[in-house]
């Protein structure tokens, strides 16, 4: 508890660092074909990024070593960084089950795919109705009113009154 270095290495951190390292290496390589003034800044930046990423990975190595030798790490430190409140985003992300994730991502994907294909004015009422009925188990009346009002207000204010550009779909 006294030192942060005694906490176990989180695999995710290592994976992210490795991914970032790959991004910086890629950025460095891509920059090689450019004229001098174009590549100077990206080159320096990518080099710095690679350096920090390696440093970070090295730190993880030391951390893993210390953790193993001391056996004194407690899970408390981890719990400390996440508030005990079940409302916090870290907690929800950490504890949600695979099915919940799949459902949430599925709905989000459905919304944005529909947005790109059907355009905002069709997607919004359709999605609202479907989401409220299926995921939210709302009543037909409430869901329908919400869907119609949301679609109608959006169409009227953004489409007709102000003619603001909106995702229009591929049609």
């Amino acid at each position: 508890m006294k030192t942060a270095t005694a906490t176990p290495v989180r695999l995710g951190d290592v994976v992210i660092t490795v991914l970032l390292l790959a991004v910086f290496v890629g950025a460095y390589l891509l920059a090689q074909d450019w004229p001098f003034r174009t590549k100077l800044f990206p080159g320096l930046l990518a080099t710095a990024g690679i350096g920090i990423a390696v440093l970070k990975l090295g730190g993880h190595g030391v951390q893993a070593y210390r953790h193993r030798t001391r056996h004194s790490a407690t899970r408390q430190e981890d719990a400390g960084s996440e508030q005990g409140d079940d409302h916090s985003i870290e907690y929800v992300f950490g504890t949600a089950g695979a099915r919940a994730w799949l459902a949430a991502l599925g709905w989000a994907a459905a919304f944005f795919v529909a947005l790109c294909v059907l355009g905002v004015f069709i997607t919004v009422p359709l999605f609202t109705l479907a989401y409220l009925k299926i995921s939210g188990s709302a009543g037909w009346l409430g869901a329908t009113i919400y869907a119609v009002v949301a679609g109608g207000v959006l169409w009227f204010v953004f489409g007709e009154l102000l003619a603001v550009p909106m995702p229009a779909g591929i049609f």
Binding site: A150, V153, V157, L161, L162
Partner: peptide
């Protein structure tokens, strides 16, 4: 959606 009235 409280946008309609003020605009109008």
């Amino acid at each position: 959606m409280f946008d309609r009235k003020p605009t109008r």
